[in-house]
Amino acid sequence: MDWLGPVIFLAVLVLVGLYGVVIYNNLVSLKHGVSKAWANIDVLLKQRHDELPKLVETVKRYMSHERETLREVIAARNEVEQAREHEDVKQVGRAEGHMRESLMNLFAVAEDYPELKADQSFQQLQQRISGLENSIADRREYYNESVNLNNVRIEQFPDVMVARMFNFGPFDLLEFAEAEKRDVDMGNLFGS
């Protein structure tokens, strides 16, 4: 019966191997989870990117003397788009901050134009962009939770061994500057 020891050893070895496979598969799932969470933000950024020119065009009809404010919105839009295309999460965070700031400025200035406030298409765009901003904020939370789960997992034992062996790395959090984290509350801006 000298074989019992090797049999147990072999069984333990097989179990350890299988556990390694489970860890590897989980790390792959976490990585894809982060990509999926980013794709979910990306689609909203694209939608907002498409909506903003309509907003600018509508606003331009009433605010012809506020070229600088509108230029800021367009610049911020382009900045977000560039960062998004390069999948540079940190830069998206910074650009998103500028975007929100410029939108707040735009709507603060729009306060002085009652005809613009009454415009139907402006109201619809305001509602649409407000909804997109809320969804981006929700999905940012979801993305950051996915990133945290991944980043914590790849540093925990025994996952860290598999993570290092197969080069599973951390992801950047999507952070907006503190002053720029506020939701763009267009309802309040217009006192409606």
Binding site: N26, L30, G33, A37, N134, D138, E141, Y142, L149
Partner: peptide, 8 residues
Amino acid sequence: DTPTARLR
């Protein structure tokens, strides 16, 4: 490992 999604 699955983050919670908000329904909105």
